[in-house]
Amino acid sequence: MSDAALNATRPYEPTFGDYVALLKPRVMSLVVFTALVGLLVAPVSLHPVETFAAILFIALGAGASGALNMWYDADIDAVMKRTAARPVPSGRVEPGEALAIGVGLSGLSVVMLGLATNLAAAALLAFTIFFYAVIYTMWLKRWTPQNIVIGGAAGAFPPMVGWVAATGSVSLEACLMFALIFLWTPPHFWALCLFMKSDYDNAGVPMLTVTHGRKSTRRHILAYTLILAPAPIWLALTSVGGPVTLITAIGLNAWFVKRAVDIWRRDEEQAQHDSYAVEKKFFRFSLYYLFLHFVALIADAVIRGLL
């Protein structure tokens, strides 16, 4: 390398942490958790090193799709308050670097998951990355207000990939874990849209709140919450479920439906009056809702192991 090249300085030298931020660590933590549950509740158990490797490469695949998302969406991320500080729109990382990291880690994670577990899991991970980066990010997100409904599938695949990594095939239990996250995503995200109003309006992303109005979004939240409720109860009645999952599912869904009805009954005037308190509470609760369902699955697996 010449001295000229060595001395060429960028306005900002990206740190290792900036590259890690490209992988959306918070999303990765959810992926790690749900994939781990999918893998642990499966009837076939892997060696601990294989389990660790499988979870790591599933998380890496999710991170890679996050980097591709940041590369493609840098223009709209820059105008949204929530995403403006991300590495690419803030200028800390070059778009080309984000693309290279996304493509490189995608390939690495798929190949390594295939070697660590099986080809079916690797193929499903490759499809998940493709679904999030291409189907959701490049196609649906800017085209249809149903973007989050179909795009939610990308976030729903990790427990299924975990299950397939252990068993080598898809089953009803894996599909129901998928359905739980898939159907949970729209009400969770639309509640966020209700109180993050200006962000999506400014970016011109066709969110339901922008295209169909806020009253319609409230109706959609209730409708999807009602469709969601049977999924975890059905899951509790399968081989991976048990008393803990069943009680948790009934309790959480009764609470979730009640909150969704509250949101549906309110109008904008009431929401603005208390600074969207009910919508914010619903959004926060939705995080616990998903987390506790998967914790319950682990609890039942532990109970089965002790009996």
């Binding site: 990206p14 290792f16 590259y19 490797a53 070697l115 660590a116």
Partner: peptide, 21 residues
């Protein structure tokens, strides 16, 4: 330095994992 250290440690961890697998 910090970036190179991070990359180096990541690669080391990768080698250890592949060896373990």
């Amino acid at each position: 330095f910090s970036r190179n250290l991070g990359v180096g440690l990541t690669l080391l961890a990768m080698v250890a994992l592949i060896f373990g697998l």
